[in-house]
Amino acid sequence: MRRDFLEKTLRNLGDALDEAGRAESSGPLRRLDPRVKLAGFFGLILAAASSRHLPVTLGLWGLGATLAAVSGPGAWRAILRLWAGVGLLTGAVALPALFLTPGPALDWGVTQTGLQSALTLLVRVETTATFASLIALTTPWPALLKALRHFHVPALAVVIFAMATRFIFVLLGIARDAFEARRARHVGHLPGKLRRQMAASGAAMLLGKSIQLSGEVYDAMRARGFRGEAVTLDEFRCSRADWAAAGLFLALTGAALEWGCWR
């Protein structure tokens, strides 16, 4: 029988719970100050997104591949999976463009501009996705959250963001338990209407629990002195290597922009 929506949902919830602990990388990126990493990769993503020349984008993709390769086998495998997934999806999206874009014709109805634009899109999306994933793969979440505090993100926004990442796990757990209980009670195939009701009531119950939880959390925060304004602690020290890396990121981003966009 076809996989039930309950099974699919349970699998999604489980995958998300697993995914969270996946920053199992090593190498220089892992040791880099998260602030430098965040700003550096953001610059590179911007450069890749701005590049108008395929060779420059390809060069940036090579840089991403190299960084992934030196970040340990776990990170490398994750990046390979990412390339496959992104490649399939973007490849399929870009495929009709081969034929549909007006321009000088090549063989089989493919136009040159079509080929050019499909390739540009594919390489660009692979490259930006690589950089974005490298941040998450080589930085533990809490360090990433702390790094955000340094980019003039309002402290309250950072606290909300950090708390939301925390409560995702609580709610994922609650949702999983609820759906597992339902699966245990219902064996066999249910009529569509009932299944829809079941999914919606699951979501509604989760919403009720969420609102209740937010009330309890509010109590817990107030009891320890929270009055609406967040206070956070700065714990980073930039080493010489971090500064050097920051310079390197800056130079690479500048070069990519120079050749890929401004020239």
Binding site: V159, M163, A164, S214, M221
Partner: peptide, 13 residues
């Protein structure tokens, strides 16, 4: 002050 817990929990939802 309820803003922070309410928004963060609802984002998680």
């Amino acid at each position: 002050a309820r803003l922070a817990p309410l928004i963060s929990v609802c984002a998680a939802f």
